[in-house]
Amino acid sequence: MKNLNINIYPDLVFYPVVNFDYKTRICEISGESFMEDTYKFYEPIIEWLNEYIKEKKTIVLNIKLTYFNTSSSKFILVILNTLKKYKNDSNNATVNWFYNKEDIDMLKEIVEFQDETGLEINKIIL
């Protein structure tokens, strides 16, 4: 299985950088996410994740988003729900969400995702 690296729009801040590394088992998404066509952007990420978890290997997801719009939040929710189910099936999944100390709105969003999915999210101050 190949790594998933998306950084095709470095001059456009509304596309996040995605590095899902098959070898290290560390998947990272960083930057901002408010593109016009969220489905087109997130579809390959969801597909990659669904393929990866078939192998029942450990996964660490590092989220370093400083902003995501409400449309992107639907896909973050899908990713987190997928990992919650993966964990429930006795697999090893860790989610670390990095945020700025002053950004209490981001912290609230993380807690909302945690409450909604039931997935434990490590909240790490940058």
């Binding site: 016009e36 066509d37 969220t38 489905y39 997130y42 719009n69 409400t70 449309s71 939040s73 639907k74 896909f75 929710l77 899908v78 909302e112 909604e116």
Partner: peptide, 19 residues
């Protein structure tokens, strides 16, 4: 309300209807 609407929204829809 945000949670309910987001879950009802289709992934193919470019809006989550919670803006």
């Amino acid at each position: 309300k945000k949670m309910i609407l987001r879950n009802e929204s289709s992934l193919r829809d470019n809006s989550a209807h919670i803006g």
